[in-house]
């Protein structure tokens, strides 16, 4: 209602300007204002990772970031990681390994894994598990997710070396 703040940010490579209330979380802004509903709400208290996005290169729970904090920042959501008409290697490997079931946690996992591989292109299995411990999944038992991330890391390393 009243007291909306204008915020400028770069979301998935596009400059956007939006109005948000000071108390609105980035998660609410993404979903309700910008209608980027690929980012999910699972707990709204920073425990499940379903709302994870990358904010200026840092993995964050978007439910714990205020919308106004996005001012001047670059944000990557699940909608912004694939090349046009294609899939990101992580998305591809999640499909190949059937590393998703109900799928509600999947965007958060893929974004978290991308943040990991951006910083550490060759993680060990333990590092992957440790990094992804902030993302909850109730369907898969994580094994296939971990395999998919390790496999994607291999593919991305090959692509980089080409």
């Amino acid at each position: 209602m009243a007291n909306k703040t204008a915020v400028q940010a770069t979301i998935n490579g596009e400059d956007v300007e939006f109005l948000c209330e000071p108390h609105q979380s980035l998660l609410e802004v993404l979903r309700d204002v910008l209608r980027l509903t690929g980012t999910k709400e699972g707990c709204n208290n920073g425990n499940c990772g379903a709302c994870n996005v990358i904010l200026d290169g840092v993995l964050v729970n978007s439910c714990l970031v205020l919308g106004v904090e996005a001012q001047g920042k670059r944000i990557t959501t699940i909608e912004g990681i694939a090349p046009p008409h294609g899939l990101h290697p992580l998305q591809q490997k999640f499909l190949e390994h059937a590393a998703l079931q109900c799928g509600i946690c999947t965007p958060g996992f893929i974004i978290s894994a991308k943040a990991l591989l951006d910083h550490k292109p060759h993680p060990s299995e333990h590092e992957v598990r440790h990094w992804l411990a902030g993302n909850l999944c109730r369907c898969t038992g994580y094994d296939k997710i971990v395999r998919a991330v390790l496999d994607a890391a291999d593919v991305m390393a090959v692509e980089v070396s080409k």
């Binding site: 209608r35 690929g38 959501t77 699940i78 899939l87 499909l95 059937a98 998703l100 799928g103 965007p107």
Partner: peptide, 21 residues
């Protein structure tokens, strides 16, 4: 085989009931 619901779930396009407006 690939899951038929896989691509939409992996790219954020899958619509859950709370995603509709």
């Amino acid at each position: 085989a690939n899951r038929v619901d896989g691509p939409d779930k992996a790219n954020g396009a899958a619509k859950y009931a709370g995603d509709y407006r």
